[in-house]
Design a protein around this nucleic acid. Structure first.
Lengths: 205, 205
DNA sequence: CTGTTATGTGAACACTGTATACATAATTGC
DNA sequence: GCAATTATGTATACAGTGTTCACATAACAG
């Protein structure tokens, strides 16, 4: 039993956790200082012992959402079995897996996706770690290393892949896909188009 | 001279104009009812004679931003001269022009771009007119009609093109492009990749 | 055990969007 | 042309927000 002590213990983490939950449930714009404080059982002003203001708190929540996204991509890539006779095929499948994981994260958790890339998220730069951007670049390097992608295309590859996958994610997350189309089809079509644009010869399976 | 009359004349339009200006300057999240009211020289409650609440007002502003974007695309397409001997080349150049216009709108007016596609924008569906989505689909139809793009690829074409262009726009608008890369290069690379994914044979020029 | 520091509370402040009652102007019917 | 009605504005009040400041409580160091 946690007796109602005067000091919370680790308010910082508790506030972030509550913030992430709320943001996941009702969107990043719904974050409210007083609500988080009372959810954690603390007075509003206590928050200021751990965050300079609300903007910093929600920026931290945003960062956590980006971290969650990156972790989904990592575990999706890790789930792809090694292909012994063809190192290229493994790299290709892993590339597809992280792309699919990215999009499916956006579809299954649209509010978290918004949270990750919201404008108010301080500096949602591509380059902070651990980030989806880093995971993508590693996958691209692996593609080149395995000989599945020409080195000549490596330069702009990350941007092309990111743009397409991130763009589709936003479309699907916000339900902007026009009626006749199916999300699943759009995903496979886009992933195929990306690999095609990168000069990757795709497995027929 | 406009004497300070009791009745404004057309508060509705004035509020929207002020809202668009503010949103363009400082982002959609900065829209404030009281500020808009005083900017137009009217009391806060007067706003409610023309909009049910603030959400509807900013949704209208968001719609105006989408309209501005669509207009940029249209005029960019209109600026492409007709190629008499090759109807396909004209269609291709127009397609490139609207894609470039879309991205350059996002880069030159990042706050307006945010305004256009913000989550709180009521229903920023792709299908409302006049919209960038409609302009894109018309350009794609023209490509097929001119024989520059195989009909077989028409189905998912809009989504692929939209995802890539919209995604890159968001990246550039938020300054998420990693340092070594140049925006101009990213734009041409992405546009080329899109046309390639659509099965369009591009002019070498 | 005492002084210091970290971490909480409570009451206030300025600010927001919104509702209600009232004032003024434009419009309509005779 | 005048009276009633409708449209459009103002003034004031209210609940809610993030934030601040003085103070309370607990943990910790010497």
């Amino acid at each position: 039993m946690t007796s109602p002590r005067y000091h919370h213990g680790n308010l910082h983490a508790a506030l972030l956790a509550a913030g992430l939950t709320a943001s996941q449930a009702r969107g990043p714009a719904s974050l409210q200082l007083r609500e988080l404080a009372s959810a954690v059982g603390v007075s509003p002003s206590a928050v200021y012992r751990h965050f300079p203001d609300m903007a910093h708190l929600s920026a931290e929540v945003s960062r956590m959402a980006r971290e969650a996204l990156a972790n989904r991509m990592l575990s999706a890539a890790a789930a792809v079995p090694e292909v012994t006779n063809d190192p290229g095929e493994g790299a290709i499948r892993r590339m597809q897996a992280i792309g699919r994981a990215y999009i499916e994260f956006a579809v299954s958790e649209p509010h978290l996706f918004d949270t990750a890339f919201m404008a108010a998220g301080a500096a949602p730069s591509c380059t902070d770690d651990p980030s989806a951007w880093g995971v993508l670049n590693n996958a691209l390097d692996a593609l080149v290393r395995a000989g599945a992608m020409p080195v000549s295309r490596r330069d702009g590859a990350a941007i092309v892949a990111w743009s397409a996958v991130h763009g589709l994610s936003g479309v699907l997350a916000r339900g902007m896909l026009p009626p006749p189309h199916q999300p699943a089809d759009a995903i496979t079509t886009t992933l195929a188009a990306v690999l095609d644009a990168l000069g990757v010869r795709q497995p027929t399976a």
